[in-house]
Amino acid sequence: MSAAAQTQSAPSDRRRIFALVFGVSFAVLYVVCDMAALPMFTYHPGSDRIDLGFTPARPDEGPAMYWFGWIATSALGAFVLALGAALLPQKAGAKIPLALAWIVPIALVPVLIYSLKFYWRW
């Protein structure tokens, strides 16, 4: 980093903290929802029906989809966490490393690959 960049202080405004915490917590919560089966709702594409929470596929109604429910759960959780972080004193919010925005998604890739171990059969 250049000397000019080092002397320039990072503006720790609430939008940056909100966006950062939302992105990081959304990624983590999404993986948790996937692995712990925590969808906000279950969509049954065969019958076009929606059930609250986790519902297994019903006989003669085709498969159940949890992906939409995982997104809803993690988006809501991330929004709450991001709002909380944005309301923190700016001094505390500024301590959240910006690098988490790209380190966390990379770190989650092996976890996601592991979560899909069912498919890696030879």
Binding site: R16, F18, A19, G23, A27, Y30, V31, W70, L112
Partner: peptide
């Protein structure tokens, strides 16, 4: 895995845009 990654990418758009 693609579905998972693009979803995570979607959540990162606000900080990317910022």
């Amino acid at each position: 895995l693609k579905e998972h990654l693009v979803t995570i990418g979607l959540g990162l758009l606000p900080i990317y845009w910022y």
